[in-house]
Computed example of a mutant assay.
Amino acid sequence: MKKRKVPMRRDVLTEAMLPKKELVRIVRDQEGTISIDPTGKKSGRGAYVSLDPEAVKAAKPKKVLDKVFNQKIAPEFYDDLFAYVDHQKARQELFGQQK
C-alpha cells in the first residue's frame, strides 16, 4: 500500500517543521479578530503553534503572535491559548493521537 504524504507546517514559536496534526492553528479573519481554530478550516490568515505550553508561555513576553499577524494582540489571548494548548496536550497524553 502506498504511503500518504504527511502535511508539514512551521511552528511560529519554535520555527520547527512538524506534522499538521500536531499543531494548533491560530487565525486572523477579515475583521482582524484573532482566534484559535480547532478545525483548521476557518478562512483567514493562519499561523501554527505546537502543543508545547512552555513555548506559548515564553511567547507572551516576546509578543511573537503580534509580530506574525502585524497587529496588537491582547495578553488575555496568550492566556487562552496557553489553556487550550495545555488541555490539548493533556488529552493527547491520555487518549493518544486523536483530534
Rank of each mutant, 00 (worst) to 15 (best):
Arg28Lys: 10
Ile73Val: 04
Leu81Trp: 08
His87Val: 10
Leu23Cys: 01
Gln71Cys: 13
Glu15Asp: 07
Ala90Thr: 10
Phe69Val: 09
Gln97Phe: 15
Pro53Tyr: 02
Lys72Trp: 13
Pro61Val: 13
Val6Trp: 10
Tyr84Gln: 09
Thr14Ser: 03
Leu51Phe: 03
Val24Leu: 07
Asp52Gln: 04
Asp11His: 03
Leu18Thr: 09
Ile73Trp: 05
Pro7Cys: 12
Val85Leu: 13
Val64Glu: 05
Arg9Asp: 07
Pro19Phe: 11
Glu15Ile: 03
Val12Met: 10
Tyr84Pro: 04
Lys62Val: 01
Gly32Pro: 00
Arg91Tyr: 13
Leu81Pro: 05
Asp11Cys: 08
Pro38Met: 08
Ala90Gly: 03
Gln88Gly: 11
Ser43Asn: 12
Lys57Gln: 00
Gly40Leu: 07
Leu94Gly: 06
Lys57Asp: 00
Ala55Ser: 05
Lys60Phe: 01
Pro7Trp: 10
Thr14Lys: 01
Ala58Asp: 09
Lys60Trp: 02
Thr33His: 10
Lys89Tyr: 08
Thr14Cys: 05
Leu18Tyr: 04
Leu18Arg: 14
Asp37Gly: 04
Ala74Gly: 01
Asp29Met: 11
Lys20Gly: 01
Lys57Ala: 04
Thr33Asp: 11
Lys62Gly: 00
Arg9Phe: 01
Ala74Pro: 00
Lys3Ile: 15
Gly44Thr: 08
Phe77Lys: 02
Phe95Tyr: 15
Pro38Asn: 06
Lys99Cys: 06
Lys2His: 06
Glu31Phe: 07
Ala74Thr: 12
Val27Glu: 02
Val24Trp: 08
Lys62Met: 05
Ile36Pro: 00
Leu23Ser: 02
Lys5Met: 06
Val27Ile: 08
Gln88Val: 15
Gln98Trp: 14
Val85Tyr: 13
Asp52Arg: 03
Glu93Ser: 12
Met8Gln: 13
Arg4Tyr: 10
Thr14Met: 07
Ala47Ile: 02
Val64Ile: 13
Ala16Lys: 11
Arg25Ile: 03
Asn70Lys: 11
Lys72Phe: 10
Ile26Asp: 01
Lys41Leu: 09
